[in-house]
Design a protein around this nucleic acid. Sequence first.
DNA 1: TCTTTCAGCTAACACTTGTTTGTCAAAGAT
DNA 2: ATCTTTGACAAACAAGTGTTAGCTGAAAGA
Lengths: 210, 210
Amino acid sequence: MAETTRQRQKRQTRERILEAARTLMAGGRGLDSLGLREVARESGLAATSLYNHFPDMDALGLALIDSCCFRLRSAMEYERRSMIEIGPARAVKELVGRFVRYLNDYENDFRLLVQQRLGSHDRYRMRIQRELQLLVDELAEDVRQAVAAQGREPVPAEQEAEAAIAIMFGAGISMLDNTVTARRVLADHACLQLEMMALGGRMMAQGTRL
Amino acid sequence: MAETTRQRQKRQTRERILEAARTLMAGGRGLDSLGLREVARESGLAATSLYNHFPDMDALGLALIDSCCFRLRSAMEYERRSMIEIGPARAVKELVGRFVRYLNDYENDFRLLVQQRLGSHDRYRMRIQRELQLLVDELAEDVRQAVAAQGREPVPAEQEAEAAIAIMFGAGISMLDNTVTARRVLADHACLQLEMMALGGRMMAQGTRL
DNA sequence: TCTTTCAGCTAACACTTGTTTGTCAAAGAT
DNA sequence: ATCTTTGACAAACAAGTGTTAGCTGAAAGA
């Protein structure tokens, strides 16, 4: 059952609307401050036409967030097998590198996600929290497998992963106000911090305490 | 030179306006979505009266953020000497405990700060970034002094502090959507993560690598 | 070919917004 | 007691908002 002309055009228009919203937010504007008519103007449509694609403004916001979640997920995906085999130090570099690339490509996505993570809209918030938890869970699972593959004592993987995401996102936020080249330094710092984290986890697994 | 009646009343009104803004944001609303007239209504004033206290809406926002920064700073202040003497494990608990208390008392402050850290307003952003950097710097200095007092090798204190703040703030964000009792668990996790961090830093100082 | 569907349009409604202008009464200064 | 200052006010302005109702023309289905 092929896509009819009507369906294709509708899909394209919908995409055009989302793209217009993204454009408007490019300067750092928040999702809350976006107006329906403004988005309509930017996408070259009449204000009322947006209702053919989204029941209301909130639905548009949710669609936007959904697409951001999808792209974050896609960008952070990797060959889990290879990740486990290359060893912790290189795995950290790979992880951070992937994140920095994501940040350079989808800066405004990231901004939107972090901003709306604390927004007033419950649906938005929960959608994003769920996505981030998935990120943590996957990372934790990888850490567990990598440690098991090396025959080491099991580390507090969940905690390591949670901290790792916090560190990366924190670095990401700092990067937003820096040039692409200055971001390298921040990325190196993040790597160092993640290595410290992993090292501390390993020591803890061996029974060492502060 | 005592405060005249005029001055006192003006100061009180100004405080009333800021309080009204805080009330409106209590439900999780963003600063961006606040309207001047709305704030005026909430504070029982005519819209135009606000111009006697703030040249425009942005100035009001900045005043709000300034007060949030001040309260964060006050809440996180501590006797630095005692902090250094009690040892790393207890110092971590003390730090996180202080932060959780701040979060319970000034939840909306924290929300505002984290939200506006990525807001569209450059002045707001920079004001907040500066405040957070101060937090990191002070913490780093304390770490250095504590390590020196114990006669250990110098650790990468700046990186430890940066990661620590990122971890705490990450935990704080998660806490916002949880009950006060559930926050204890998250706080314990944060403590564990900070301990891992400190342990990793110490190992690194001794030359251990991943 | 005829009919139905529906994306996009204009017009309108009932607001809300930030800001300016000018008035007024109370506080401070002389 | 008189004059100046000033915080609070109502009215008005131009522009914005989300949303509904009704029309048009082209594509889809019969």
